[in-house]
Amino acid sequence: NQASVVANQLIPINTALTLVMMRSEVVTPVGIPAEDIPRLVSMQVSRAVPLGTTLMPDMVKGYA
């Protein structure tokens, strides 16, 4: 089972991601792979992401 990136806190719209905002977790459906966490740092979210939400490619500007 592949771990995905999950929000560790509420991430407001247009916030630049930092390591403390993200954790890896095995979830369904699968989201952005956990190994991409270093690449996500400083990228902005395109919408508010609630705590515990799996990050999907369309939620991060410039990821897809």
Rank of each mutant, 00 (worst) to 15 (best):
L10N: 10
G31A: 03
L55P: 01
V60R: 00
G31C: 03
V6I: 15
P38A: 11
G62R: 06
P12F: 05
A7K: 01
V20N: 13
P57T: 10
R47W: 06
R23A: 10
A3W: 05
P50N: 14
D36T: 12
T15E: 08
E25V: 06
P33D: 08
V26H: 06
N8H: 15
K61C: 15
P29G: 05
A48F: 08
V45L: 11
I37E: 03
T54H: 03
M59C: 04
T53A: 13
I11K: 00
A64D: 14
I11E: 01
L51E: 13
P33W: 12
L55Y: 02
M21S: 04
I32A: 01
A48C: 09
S4H: 01
V20F: 11
R23D: 07
R47K: 13
N14C: 11
L40V: 05
V45H: 00
G52L: 05
A7H: 02
A34F: 07
V5L: 03
R23L: 06
L10C: 06
G52Y: 04
M21C: 03
M21E: 02
S4N: 01
D36M: 12
Y63F: 12
V20M: 13
V30C: 13
P38R: 09
M56I: 12
L10V: 11
V6N: 02
L55E: 02
M22L: 14
R39I: 13
G62S: 09
A64R: 11
T54M: 03
V26D: 15
A64I: 12
T54Q: 03
P50G: 10
Q44V: 12
R23W: 03
V5W: 01
I32D: 00
I11A: 00
P29E: 13
M56C: 08
G52P: 02
V41D: 03
V20L: 08
S46Y: 11
R39F: 12
Q44K: 07
G31R: 02
V5Y: 00
Q2R: 03
L19I: 13
V30Q: 07
R47Q: 14
L17V: 03
D58L: 07
V30L: 15
Q2M: 07
I37K: 07
Q9V: 14
I37P: 00
R47P: 03
T28S: 14
A7L: 03
A64M: 13
E25W: 04
V20C: 10
E25K: 04
I13D: 08
Q2E: 15
Y63E: 03
S24L: 06
A34K: 05
R47M: 13
D58A: 10
A34W: 09
A3T: 12
S42Q: 14
L40T: 00
L55G: 00
L10G: 12
P12Y: 05
P33L: 10
M22N: 01
P12M: 05
G52F: 05
I13M: 10
E25N: 10
A48W: 06
E25T: 06
M22P: 00
V60I: 12
P38C: 05
P12D: 13
Q2G: 15
L40M: 12
A7E: 00
M21G: 03
P29K: 04
A3K: 06
T54E: 02
P38M: 13
M21I: 03
T28Y: 13
P57M: 09
V6D: 00
A34E: 10
L40I: 05
V27K: 10
T53H: 13
E35F: 08
Q44P: 11
G52E: 04
N8D: 14
I13S: 09
V20K: 12
E35T: 11
S4V: 02
Q9A: 14
P29Y: 04
P29V: 08
V30D: 15
R39L: 12
T15F: 07
A7W: 01
P12T: 11
I11S: 01
Q44M: 07
I37V: 07
M22W: 02
K61R: 10
V49N: 01
S46K: 14
S46G: 13
T15S: 08
T54I: 10
I32H: 00
T53M: 12
V26R: 03
S24H: 09
S24K: 06
D58P: 08
N1M: 15
L10Q: 08
Y63L: 10
G52A: 07
V26N: 10
I32Q: 01
M43G: 03
V6R: 04
R39H: 12
V27Y: 03
I13N: 13
M22S: 01
G31Y: 02
Q2F: 10
M59V: 06
V5S: 04
G31N: 01
V49T: 08
N1D: 15
N1P: 15
